Computed example of a mutant assay.
Amino acid sequence: MSIDIALYDGHPNGGRRTGPRMLHLSSPGEALTIALARHTDPARHRLGRIDPYGDTLFDEQDAGAAFEEATALLARCTTEAERAAVRELRNLLAECAATPGSRLEFLGD
């Protein structure tokens, strides 16, 4: 089971005639799913809301708040694969937070 991450310049299926433009697609693999499952709490962390079986959307405000959570998550990772996946996640969160109107879509299995 893995989570893919798509960064859009607007809301996916947001009603624009041309639709949002995908800026980046990442496939960090199962390592991100494992790291999120081990180290996040859905009641306390935005990252814990990411559904490994469905789709989850973050807007730029969610991404900005989740960036600090991802930094803490990186320190708790136990394998290089997990660390690489969380570093990729942090990069996408930072890019989304810095791009007004952008969205991150987490695509679960």
Results as ranks from 00 to 15, higher is better:
3 I>Y: 07
3 I>R: 05
6 A>K: 14
7 L>G: 02
7 L>K: 01
8 Y>F: 15
11 H>R: 15
14 G>R: 06
15 G>M: 06
16 R>P: 00
16 R>V: 01
16 R>W: 10
20 P>F: 01
22 M>A: 13
23 L>H: 05
24 H>S: 12
28 P>V: 02
30 E>D: 13
37 A>I: 06
37 A>D: 13
37 A>V: 07
38 R>C: 11
41 D>C: 09
42 P>Y: 00
43 A>M: 10
43 A>Y: 08
43 A>R: 15
47 L>R: 01
47 L>S: 02
47 L>F: 04
47 L>A: 00
48 G>W: 03
48 G>C: 04
48 G>T: 00
49 R>I: 09
50 I>D: 00
52 P>N: 01
54 G>W: 05
54 G>K: 04
57 L>W: 11
58 F>L: 09
59 D>P: 09
60 E>R: 08
61 Q>S: 13
61 Q>I: 13
62 D>N: 12
63 A>S: 15
64 G>I: 00
65 A>W: 08
66 A>V: 08
66 A>S: 11
69 E>Y: 11
71 T>L: 14
71 T>F: 07
73 L>D: 06
73 L>P: 07
74 L>C: 02
76 R>H: 05
78 T>F: 03
79 T>L: 02
79 T>S: 14
79 T>C: 04
81 A>P: 00
82 E>L: 00
86 V>F: 08
86 V>E: 05
87 R>N: 07
87 R>Q: 12
87 R>S: 07
88 E>R: 11
91 N>A: 10
91 N>L: 09
93 L>V: 05
94 A>G: 11
95 E>R: 15
95 E>W: 13
96 C>A: 15
97 A>W: 01
97 A>D: 01
100 P>H: 08
102 S>C: 03
103 R>M: 12
104 L>I: 06
105 E>S: 02
106 F>H: 03
